[in-house]
């Protein structure tokens, strides 16, 4: 359940932004969770909404989660493609090799905050 720690880190980061921009209410937070981040989105949302019960300036906020598609690279031909482009038996759509490696995106990014 590291999702709870991450939700807390998100709230802490947004609190600093509120101060920085002289705002007192968060309306919407947009977060991008990479497909290889190992973060369970349901748990993250659950953690967020549980934690903001204690945070008056977040109480009406909406958490928006963006999940970009998983990208893979073929170790054999070097080309990159999305998960839904794989062949049925999970091979490279170009050279049909099966040695595919995930590309980047194990991160969790704070994309946008709407506040007033």
């Amino acid at each position: 359940m590291h999702e709870l720690s991450l939700a807390q880190a998100l709230i802490d980061q947004v609190k600093l932004l509120l101060k920085e921009h002289n705002a007192n209410k968060v309306l919407r937070i947009s977060v991008e969770i990479g497909p290889f981040s190992g973060i369970v989105i349901d748990s993250f949302e659950f953690g967020y909404y549980a934690l903001i019960k204690e945070e008056p300036s977040f109480i009406d906020s909406k958490l928006e989660i963006i999940t970009p598609p998983a990208l893979y690279q073929c170790v054999f031909c070097g080309r990159k493609f999305k998960e839904d482009e794989l062949t049925k038996d999970k091979r490279c759509p170009f050279c049909k090799d099966s040695f595919l490696t995930p590309v980047g995106d194990g991160d969790i990014l704070l994309k946008e905050v709407e506040m007033e």
């Binding site: 880190a9 990014l109 704070l110 994309k111 946008e112 709407e114 506040m115």
Partner: peptide, 8 residues
């Protein structure tokens, strides 16, 4: 506010 900043 647009950020693109890692939560970590």
């Amino acid at each position: 506010i647009e950020l693109n900043k890692s939560i970590l």
